[in-house]
């Protein structure tokens, strides 16, 4: 496992070396503040009730887990896999004495760290924005937000593994990104017409934190969704790894 950790350092260094990473980290930080500013302006101007800090926090969790983070994670996953095949920088690491599965695992772990960093930034910024909103239940909002952002790590990581698997099909990162976006849109909109299909996509479980935090969800439903996410994650991890192992570079 030593080589996995060493290459994880390499992958993280590569992620941190691009301007895009910092722009997206900045976006994760700014979005809650801008929305809070917009809401306070709306409240002052037309008297809209913006609710308390806990409600604002849940709004942010929902926005990040269903829109922003899937996009950011999709781009990062495609950069680390298809992007490196396309630019042939993948050869650089595959010529070192590190087994392919370790390269794959270290890249996936780097994406998990990237995801956790975004969630941390989004939570911190949402807490600051809540303070700015000057509403009540600040502490409750911060704690519930921490829980919700923390729990979102799991379904979003399953989504990362799905994108990593899809990234193995492509040689061009732009094709992979377009496909991933279309796939995501299909996963969001197809269930509107075919509701039964919704439960079959990991994207349907981005609000998994609600099941944990709400009291109305039965243990059976919670267990079923948790098992579905775990099995999806292991399935996509294994399929992606198999393709990564067999591919010619």
């Amino acid at each position: 496992m030593d080589n996995v950790i060493r290459n994880l350092q390499n992958e993280w260094q590569k992620i941190l070396s691009t301007k895009k990473t910092y722009v997206l980290f900045a976006l994760s930080f700014l979005v809650p503040l801008v929305i809070a500013w917009g809401l306070t302006s709306a409240q002052a101007g037309i008297g809209i009730n913006i609710g308390n800090a806990a409600q604002f926090m849940m709004l942010m969790v929902s926005l990040f887990t269903s829109v922003l983070l899937p996009l950011f994670l999709g781009m990062a996953a495609i950069d680390l896999f298809t992007g490196e095949v396309h630019s042939r920088t993948m050869n650089w690491i595959l010529l070192r004495p590190i087994a392919r599965w370790k390269v794959y695992v270290s890249k996936v772990l780097a994406l998990a760290v990237y995801l956790a960093t975004h969630l941390g930034i989004a939570w911190l910024s949402s807490v600051l924005a809540s303070v700015w909103l000057a509403n009540d239940s600040l502490l409750t909002g911060a704690v519930e937000g921490l829980q919700a952002f923390g729990l979102s790590l799991f379904p979003l990581f399953a989504f990362v593994l799905l994108v990593v698997f899809m990234a193995q099909w492509f040689k061009s990162s732009s094709s992979a990104l377009v496909f991933a976006i279309l796939f995501y849109l299909a996963a969001v909109f197809v269930p509107i017409w075919f509701p039964k299909l919704a439960a079959l996509s990991p994207t349907h479980y981005f609000d998994w934190y609600k099941q944990w935090m709400g009291s109305a969800v039965s243990d059976w439903k919670l267990m079923r969704s948790s098992l579905f996410l775990a099995s999806s994650a292991s399935l996509f991890f294994s399929l992606g790894l198999t393709m990564f192992e067999k591919r010619d570079y």
Binding site: K14, S17, T18, K19, S87, R88, T89, N91, W92, L95, P97
Partner: peptide, 14 residues
């Protein structure tokens, strides 16, 4: 083993 295969490709920002 050390190897240089094809024209090497690098991370442009490093």
């Amino acid at each position: 083993v050390g190897a240089l295969i094809e024209t090497p490709a690098f991370y442009e920002h490093l």
